[in-house]
Design a protein around this nucleic acid. Sequence first.
DNA 1: ACGGTCTACTAGCGCGCTCTAGGACTATGC
DNA 2: GCATAGTCCTAGAGCGCGCTAGTAGACCGT
Lengths: 341, 341
Amino acid sequence: MAEGGNGRRRGKPTMEDVAAKAGVSRALVSLVFRDQPGASEATRDRVYQAAAELGYRPDTAAQMLARSRTRVIGVMVTMRNTFHADLVDAIYPAAEDLGYDILLSATSPGRDERQAVEALLGHRCEGLLLLGPNLDPEYVTHVGRQAAVVPVGRRYPDCGVSSVHAAESKGVRQVIDHLAELGHRDIVHVDGGDRPGSAERRKAYRTAMRRHGLADHIRVLAGKHTEAAGAEAAQQLLADRTHLPTAVFASNDRAAIGVLDAFQRAGLSTPGDISVAGYDDSLLAQLSHIDLTTVNQNPQRQGELAVRAAVAAIEDPDSGPQDHAVDPKLVIRGTTAQPRG
Amino acid sequence: MAEGGNGRRRGKPTMEDVAAKAGVSRALVSLVFRDQPGASEATRDRVYQAAAELGYRPDTAAQMLARSRTRVIGVMVTMRNTFHADLVDAIYPAAEDLGYDILLSATSPGRDERQAVEALLGHRCEGLLLLGPNLDPEYVTHVGRQAAVVPVGRRYPDCGVSSVHAAESKGVRQVIDHLAELGHRDIVHVDGGDRPGSAERRKAYRTAMRRHGLADHIRVLAGKHTEAAGAEAAQQLLADRTHLPTAVFASNDRAAIGVLDAFQRAGLSTPGDISVAGYDDSLLAQLSHIDLTTVNQNPQRQGELAVRAAVAAIEDPDSGPQDHAVDPKLVIRGTTAQPRG
DNA sequence: ACGGTCTACTAGCGCGCTCTAGGACTATGC
DNA sequence: GCATAGTCCTAGAGCGCGCTAGTAGACCGT
């Protein structure tokens, strides 16, 4: 090994070592590393120099222990969810800005949400961002007493926790407005079953339809947030061709893609024969060969707000829970157009 | 608040509190929680009881500090990568089996791989799994001296680290064997540029073609691992319809989907007019309306092996680096069939 | 009575850091 | 001269836990 010096894995340098090397006390090194006043420029440089030479890195575990604060925010995510990925992209820089560290814990088949949350609590997270949680309110209330919990994408009223979510009704309304303005009247909604947000979207669909005087055209098909469910709903529509709607609004992009696919297989063209809109503005929707009209939920802003809400709750525990509704934005692409005739 | 007792966020119960409540010493509580011999059944029960009543949870930071071991393995992931999601699914249970904790750190636009790794090192990870890394060998060597590094999906020879990856050549060979057996001779490869694994796949394609006596039919189109790149390559093929191949093997699923889409738009049917195969067996490939023949890289096994390799290196630092090649498996779906005529 | 060997437990140091209290030294005012 | 203030630094007490060394008591055999 052509390496100079300590090629050992064990016995990493500590503050003590740095202090000895720089010829100062351990406390002074701590001071310098925490960027606190009370050390001369010259000494600071010596300390940094010594640290660099030793390859010193502060021990997070010890820091956490020593300050009773950990300055860590845990995030429960689902790896496969691209919306979560967008949120995480926003969460990291927002947390760094406020001087917090981020810990990710994934749910997956074989690792439920509770396990993911427990792991984070074990790491003494002061804040806990739950992305698209499906936890029961009792548990959230319980966890909310141990950390500043912020569910994202779902509200937990009466749990005493802040939350961040999209203003579903506004997004849905934009979709229906868009379709109605194009001249559509028969607009069917394929819903998302019991997934977070689905109930709100379903309700908002009904409201928006009524607002356009289309109450008689309200039609909701049971669905889920999967391609298969979307395709199945489309099959249901295709079973009675005489009553085909001119537009379908699916509760999320994946379902919309299933709908699209089923129609195309049945020989219908989009948006010529039928318009389709989704929800989420996922990467899928953006693919050029899909080019789906959908609703962007502004994950950037949601992520940022979630971090801020958590930090606010951490640093002032007496501040009550806050509810942040982020305005979504309609993204018009190629799957919606005027109805035929 | 209709809650009984300590609704405070600060001042979480410690081992001391549990000990006092159970009427034993702190050391005994520690013993019980570590599942070590030396405590009677009755006392164990009392301790657990007291802990439950107080809502006690061991402090990970303190544990890490006290044993000089942290028993933490950090994982660098890219959230949007579904293959990484599959790996993580396998990593969690494998780590738990061996008594290790998992910490996830995501790369994202605005957070490069080094930052993700540094964050993990700050948390004193003993092991470091790098999923699909793009780091330079010098850095990997450097980090390898501080933790047991295991790159997954890419080899770092001469860096002194173990690695886990798919046996690319075997996967590619299976694809070409499959296509050749169906009767294809004009098999074009759309490569993946400089992405990890692409060079191996390109080379393996050439070798496999020669093995089938198809050296004269070798044809590689420059690509990338995106739908757009796949579509572009397909356009290139479509430009000269008299020399259309009968099959296309893309370097990953996303590119394959781009190829598929471009062909379908051009009025060609799959697999009737042309067969298409991908690589990865991503969720996309599994969608019923895509139904892509592809190669499964066995993420389950790769994740498991990666954890084992890291633990092996941690617990016996003198064990040399090991290279684990995981056999991939061809998944035949609906986009490949006998060539027309 | 003695030592010996169990089992069931406790005392207390140290992990690497933060942070309060205070010390040493110089500069300034009167 | 003395007090006052400011600057740069150090001592040392924890943070919550793991773990080694050791103790008390029970039981055994002689």
